[in-house]
Amino acid sequence: MSDRLLSPSRPSSAVRAPLVFGGLPEAEGWERVPITPRDRVHFRVDRDLPLEEFRTDAPDGVTVSYDQGDGLYRVDGAPGSASVLADWVKAWCARHGASTVGLRAETDVRRRSPRDLPPAFLADLCRHYGPVSLKRLQRNMSTIRLHLPDPDDLGQQVYEWVLKAVSQYDETKGVPFGAFLATQLSKWVHDLGRNAHGRTAADTEHKQQKAIAAFIAEHQRRPSEKELAAFMGQSVATLRRNSQTVATLNGLRNLQSLDGGPDTAEVLLPDSSEAPDEIMGEAEQTLLSHALTAACAPDPDARRDQRAGQPNVLGWATWYLTTWGGRTKTQLSNELNTSVRNMNVYADRVEKALKDRLAELAD
């Protein structure tokens, strides 16, 4: 996985030969395209931008990238240009009827563009490290399958992670690329849950699962509530509150209609002339809940790597918990560790789809 030498006590014949990609030794490939500093502006928008026009209008020397899965735009420019770029982005979006969400200017970001590497070098590197990464991720597969159940989607995600590591790898630190990639993979697997369900909820679930696994390894049985609280150094009340967060997270994952076609399930309504008012009230709530869940399902016409092709879990949680759960958006923002603006972006997507579905129900 790297060009590190084996132990010095081994015979010289045990030295691992450097990896060669596209006719270049790996170290020489990094030297040809070193990592460089830049200023970067991250942002999302409340509607899709005409990306090619945005790139064409960008100032000279500025590059634009777009992460379809996260709906995140990145604008890179020369060091010292962060504030100017941020103002330009806001003005350009405003002229095109879009509002920026969560705009953040960052200075001294060290990155390389994978496309600057020799094409044969990059292709061979991905062919080598893709299967290596899949093998390394076997220990995380139970978590990965919650978010990427399709093997084709997993394969695509792994190669995206390899390219992400290529862009972030700093060859001057003396750490082999293979070792750097291995450490980042576990972090990025954890980020799958954080991105989909909110940072606090995903982190809470991760800590609880690690504590339960450690307790089982030590005692060969699952802990009781009091034992788990003591093991984690928490009060029982804190553990119960966190357990409720985890239960909510798992409940969201298990909403089958978010991934399956909710419209294929028939909803039976009682005859309003025969049913009492309270039953009709429950039926109306069922219809509304069904419409909300259906509005959060993936768009069947969108690709899986697009935001519209993913279940809109954050939008569902925002609508459901503020409508029936007695929560405010500020409370949810604190619990899920995401901004109210970000919640509004996902909730607005729900609103557009929900209006259409409620109109159909009214007919």
Score class of each variant (00 low, 15 high):
2 S>V: 08
3 D>F: 14
5 L>F: 05
9 S>K: 08
13 S>P: 01
18 P>I: 05
19 L>C: 02
27 A>K: 11
27 A>C: 08
37 P>C: 02
38 R>G: 07
40 R>K: 10
41 V>T: 03
46 D>C: 13
48 D>G: 09
48 D>P: 15
51 L>E: 12
52 E>F: 07
53 E>R: 06
54 F>T: 08
58 A>Q: 01
58 A>M: 00
59 P>L: 03
61 G>C: 00
63 T>Q: 06
64 V>A: 02
66 Y>V: 10
67 D>N: 15
72 L>G: 01
73 Y>M: 06
74 R>S: 13
75 V>K: 01
77 G>Y: 01
84 V>S: 04
91 A>M: 12
92 W>G: 01
94 A>P: 02
94 A>K: 00
94 A>M: 02
96 H>K: 13
98 A>I: 06
100 T>G: 05
106 E>G: 00
109 V>A: 12
114 P>H: 04
116 D>C: 00
122 L>R: 00
122 L>W: 03
123 A>K: 02
126 C>Y: 03
130 G>H: 01
134 L>A: 06
134 L>K: 05
135 K>C: 10
138 Q>H: 11
140 N>A: 15
140 N>E: 12
141 M>N: 10
142 S>H: 07
148 L>T: 00
151 P>F: 07
154 L>P: 03
157 Q>D: 06
159 Y>I: 14
159 Y>T: 13
164 K>Q: 10
171 E>I: 09
177 F>W: 08
178 G>V: 14
180 F>L: 06
181 L>V: 13
182 A>K: 06
183 T>H: 15
184 Q>V: 03
185 L>D: 14
186 S>M: 11
186 S>D: 13
190 H>P: 03
193 G>R: 11
197 H>C: 12
197 H>G: 03
197 H>M: 10
199 R>T: 09
207 K>R: 11
207 K>A: 12
209 Q>Y: 11
209 Q>D: 13
213 A>W: 12
214 A>Q: 15
216 I>G: 00
217 A>Q: 13
220 Q>H: 07
222 R>F: 08
227 E>M: 07
238 T>E: 11
239 L>N: 13
239 L>H: 14
241 R>C: 05
241 R>D: 09
244 Q>D: 10
244 Q>K: 09
246 V>P: 04
246 V>G: 04
253 R>V: 01
253 R>M: 07
255 L>P: 05
259 D>F: 10
260 G>D: 13
260 G>S: 12
260 G>H: 07
260 G>C: 08
264 T>Q: 11
265 A>H: 11
269 L>E: 01
269 L>K: 00
271 D>R: 05
273 S>W: 05
273 S>Q: 04
275 A>W: 01
276 P>N: 09
277 D>Q: 00
280 M>N: 09
290 H>M: 12
293 T>L: 15
297 A>P: 05
304 R>M: 01
304 R>D: 01
307 R>L: 15
308 A>T: 03
309 G>Y: 00
315 G>A: 07
317 A>F: 14
319 W>M: 14
323 T>H: 09
325 G>K: 14
326 G>R: 05
332 L>P: 03
343 M>H: 06
344 N>Y: 12
344 N>D: 14
344 N>Q: 13
345 V>M: 12
356 D>Y: 10
357 R>C: 08
358 L>R: 08
363 D>C: 06
